[in-house]
Design a protein around this nucleic acid. Structure first.
Ligand code: SF4
Ligand code: SF4
Lengths: 153, 153
DNA sequence: CTATTTTAGGACAAAAGACTCTCTAAAACC
DNA sequence: GGTTTTAGAGAGTCTTTTGTCCTAAAATAG
């Protein structure tokens, strides 16, 4: 797997938050039901995003979480780095320590190209872009429902 | 991580076997010492490759394993499929079941492109190609040593 | 101040992945 | 036939990932 499950959940939640008006806090409980992720587990993941400065959180009634920056300024890369860390972008395909630069393995050139393409994809996808695509084509974020359902839910 | 650790070990071992004259069997014990992977664990992994028809094995003195086909006809994709299975190439970036075709998520187009680039890399790298690159530039397959050491080991 | 809603955080449990150990089976050599 | 060399197969252990649960702390409303 390219991304850990926690990371995938974090991405789904981030995209969902980006569909919302950013002036109000969204309770994690409600969000977890909408995007079909266990409440407690999602809470843990969002705690990481909050700690990394991607989300604002607020306790108490009318509390919840929201994006700390506009959706146009948050990329998938930000979320992946916050949850899975930089390993995906620095680690060796053959798992040899101290890699790439001085003494590469035979796979290095090809792998470095592929790694760049992954990096490129993550950096070039802002939450705003994904929400717009989702809205315009009614794509889905859950097993069943499309975007319309999310926006009105 | 893109590939499981077992898969990475399998790749290292396959590349190593491709450096050898394919007429003799290489004992796993010796190989495990050369490429610095636990003997028993490597045995398990190579059993899978044997079961999948990528390796020949032979018991008893002068036994061991060797590639079943010429190194030019085995790609990294073959090894990855044998050990990690096809998940990497079929699975969703957002982990939604029943994916891609009829009802994609907003990430699908970009992800499909990246996935193709991974697929392309794995399919276009034959063991022979890697060994040639390794030989000509004395690249490494272990933490320390380069190819010269492997060939003469 | 008290009860309620909501995040924060830690302890715990289950499952998967990574690795070890031991015994068995086959082949070769003497 | 007996011993050695090798792969095969299974059970068992350790670690990481995934997921649950419970309590505390903050905020709000009455
Ligand atoms: S040399 Fe490059 S491709 Fe090879 S293991 Fe290191 S980073 Fe990966
Ligand atoms: S629609 Fe495409 S990108 Fe999205 S989860 Fe499915 S396969 Fe992955």
């Amino acid at each position: 797997m390219l991304l850990s499950k926690s990371c995938v959940y974090g991405l789904r939640a981030s995209i969902y938050l980006a569909t919302k008006n950013n002036s109000e806090y969204i309770p994690i409980k409600k969000m977890s039901e909408t995007i079909e992720i266990s409440h407690h587990f999602l809470t843990k993941i969002l705690q990481q995003l909050t700690a990394q400065g991607l989300l604002d959180s607020y306790k108490g009634p009318n509390g919840g979480v929201r994006l700390k920056k506009p959706a146009s300024e948050i990329t998938l890369m930000d979320v992946v780095l916050a949850i899975d860390g930089p390993d995906l972008l620095t680690e060796c395909a053959l798992g040899l320590p101290g890699c790439g630069h001085q003494n590469p393995c035979p796979l290095h050139d090809k792998w470095a190209t592929t790694r760049d393409s992954i990096k490129q994809m993550l950096e070039s996808s802002s939450l705003e872009y994904l929400v717009e695509r989702g809205k315009s084509e009614d794509l889905r974020l859950t097993n069943e429902g499309g975007f319309e359902k999310l926006l009105n839910g």
